[in-house]
Design a protein around this nucleic acid. Structure first.
Lengths: 249, 249
DNA sequence: TTTGAAAGTGTTAAAATGACACAAAGAGCA
DNA sequence: TGCTCTTTGTGTCATTTTAACACTTTCAAA
């Protein structure tokens, strides 16, 4: 069904505008990014999920569609990072030959609009998905190279994430519904890339009143079990209405 | 000379990608935006300075070129806001007819990449410029409508400006080299759109050590003359090196 | 000389920050 | 049963930062 639509509309692909998605996930230890493995290129060559937009499509819609087509991920809030458009962005030979194989106008100048989002890794196992045999989580810090200008895009996404985590509680998107404060703590340290004092962190997050503690505890862990918490969305919405704008870590 | 280049390259205009610039200025009282008056449209219709990019042109370069062509402003640091690309952005009839008159492919889907910058109003008087007979400063708060989706772009630029003023001392771009603390104070109030306590503001700005007081004072004013200050760029650069990231007003 | 208008200045109470160390709880194993 | 290992969870204090608040000074113009 989806493929049908895609083929019919293929003539309307806009050869000059693409979208790329930076999807972050957290494995309770470090940040990861979802990348796809390009077929037909020798050596491993990762790329962000992305493709051309259709001519009558909203940019945001295009990003969601492309992400779904390439990875199966759906119904995700994607936030725009910005436009990237170096006319020489296709400098590597591998990029060029790959484009030859998939694009009708491989030489066209392309502006790409980048998006990012945060997802719970547990909700999405690429290997298990029939869609995304070639999609894979890779630790952000291990990435040295990506196709096209995707490495630049990733760096921009990282710094945007750093800014945003200080302003909005986006981190909760990266954790399961029930989580421990230690996990949240580790998450903030991963994103901000610096250690945060445990006690001060807990004090601050609790004062914000955006987490509510559950009755439940961790079980089966070989140490003192941790209290479980949930994100308190209502309380957060109240805060935002009163002109709240700083998580200040 | 410039026109020559422009005409020769005209065939290479990319019909799908444009740039638009939001230029803020401060008149010691309120924020203003530089807009251009479209010819041949009945009634007053303002638009942000913008146009299509050339196919081999960096986005940032395109923004600078278009701004210079339409207003004469040059050598300005333009910061990207993001891409705007509603496929229905050309909804108004006046927009449509205007495009008919200036574009070779007036119906093409256009993605626009928006930029913003801050300039000293005293440095730029559109009326006096031979270029920009149609360019004009308009108080931001008086703008109710702009061409295309330019009003949206302006709103986004405003909120981006609000964020950024808390992180970097961009405000100094809006003031003359020598300024008074009251002017700076008013500027921050204009951008943040809320009153700031005079004494607290001055204390805070002085503690940052990014202004240096001059020996000079205002003269000719019918009240106690104000001390003049300069932005201390060196000191600011030192601050940034030490991982400084908050002006926190 | 008087008037009007903006500049400039200090204190205090409340809140936020950063630094820091040890007891409690559970699993696993001998 | 008790020992070990590992992570959780908690409080205080000194320092800094914030917010609220009012009166005197200086100049030009009338």
């Amino acid at each position: 069904m989806r493929k049908e639509i895609k083929k019919n509309a293929a003539l309307e692909l806009n050869p000059n505008v693409s979208v790329d998605c930076v999807i972050f996930g957290f494995d309770f230890d470090k940040l990861n990014v979802l990348v796809i493995n390009r077929d037909g290129v020798d050596g491993v060559q990762w790329a962000l999920p992305g493709n051309l937009i259709y001519d009558d499509e909203h940019l945001d819609q295009a990003a969601n569609r492309v992400l779904a087509e390439l990875t199966g991920l759906q119904h995700i809030y994607l936030e725009q990072i910005g436009a990237f458009g170096d006319p020489n962005r296709i400098s590597k030979e591998s990029d060029r030959s790959w484009l030859q194989s998939i694009r009708t106008q491989p030489e066209a100048r392309v502006i790409t609009v980048a998006y990012f989002s945060l997802v719970k890794m547990e909700d999405y196992q690429p290997q298990a998905s029939s869609f995304a045999k070639s999609a894979e989580w890779i630790p952000v810090n291990e990435i040295r190279e990506l196709a096209f200008d995707h490495f630049d895009i990733l760096q921009t996404a990282k710094s945007r994430l750093k800014q945003m985590i200080k302003i909005r509680p986006i981190g909760f998107n990266l954790l399961p519904e029930k989580f421990t404060l230690s996990q949240l703590h580790k998450l903030y340290e991963s994103i901000l890339d610096k250690p945060l004092d445990k006690r001060n962190f807990r004090r601050k997050i609790q004062k914000l009143n955006i987490v509510m503690s559950l009755e439940e505890k961790q079980s089966g862990v070989p140490h003192k079990p941790s209290q479980l918490f949930m994100f308190d969305k209502e309380h957060y919405l109240l805060l935002t209405q009163n002109g709240f704008d700083n998580f200040g870590f």
